[in-house]
Write a protein that binds this DNA or RNA. Structure first.
Lengths: 153, 153
DNA sequence: TAAATCCCTATTATGTCAATAGGGATTATT
DNA sequence: AATAATCCCTATTGACATAATAGGGATTTA
């Protein structure tokens, strides 16, 4: 039930780009510094996100990355599915990454039914939250004084 | 966002024991056959579940395993937490398996806030569903004709 | 006493993950 | 034209986790 470090880095990097949406491109080095992400590792991840159509890049001196689409158009679900794979806790309830499991009768497996509910709950959140939402939250959290934050989570 | 094979085996084995709750003990071999689980691997898992207090065993000829508590008393959350660890998608939002992440400001991390929501959604289901619920579902699914099952998921 | 079980530890094979390495291609600036 | 700064691409590594196997020991029943 875990997101890999790679997936987390991808979201953190996209958040930086989303916060700079409309401005100039952002260098890998900058993102790496701001977010404590190993630069070379981040290179791979950002490059991979181009295949998703989430980011685009400019090469050469004063090059960098920016979002290829408006932030309200990029969901967490699409990002995680692209860099990690299934959102479902077991692949036998996954829509796009389905694999048969080793249980004797999949159609009558009660565990599968529960796992399908878990999947739905996760997907519902991840498909609904966009990079624009993350930006909103980030800005709201930025304004909140430290003493308030203790009570939010 | 994935359950390991080990965790899946644990639940499948416990389901078998729950369906036989009140009867005699069940041999590893029987569970292994019914559920297509490698016997030696299953040994380790069941033994580990004793530490959780979920199962107890009788040794020797005509030995085997049975639930140590009523099935309505054993939640999926407790099982998965014991054999796998955190239910949370990232450890910085985990209650019992908390670990600080590498992001610059955890208290103001908007990603963390979303991940906390995902955690809540998963925990809500996993803490509520017990082995007794799985038994109910199993029996209901057993009665359903094949043609109905196509429409359930 | 023999057979069937659970019990325990060690080992292995495989794969994944996170990161590093090393250079190539492109572009802006001087 | 030269230089420096960036992105681009592939390969490799080291560490770790996972899934399983192996081999015997302890216990109980028949």
């Amino acid at each position: 039930m875990k997101l890999s470090v790679r997936g987390e880095y991808a979201i953190r990097a996209l958040l930086v780009l989303a916060l700079n949406y409309g401005d100039d491109v952002v260098r890998i080095q900058t993102i790496s510094d701001q977010q404590n992400i190993p630069k070379k590792f981040l290179e791979q991840i950002l490059n991979d996100l181009k295949a998703l159509g989430a980011v685009e890049s400019r090469r050469g001196a004063s090059g960098g990355y920016r979002l290829a689409r408006p932030p309200q158009n990029i969901t967490l679900a699409s990002v995680v599915r692209h860099v990690e794979g299934a959102l479902a806790p077991v692949s036998c309830v996954s829509d796009r990454f389905y694999e048969r499991c080793t249980c004797p009768d999949e159609a009558r497996c009660p565990i599968r039914a529960v796992m399908a509910e878990v999947r739905e709950a996760v997907v519902k959140i991840m498909e609904q939250v966009t990079l624009a939402d993350l930006c909103d939250r980030a800005r709201r959290l930025q304004r909140a004084p430290q003493t308030m934050l203790d009570y939010i989570i």
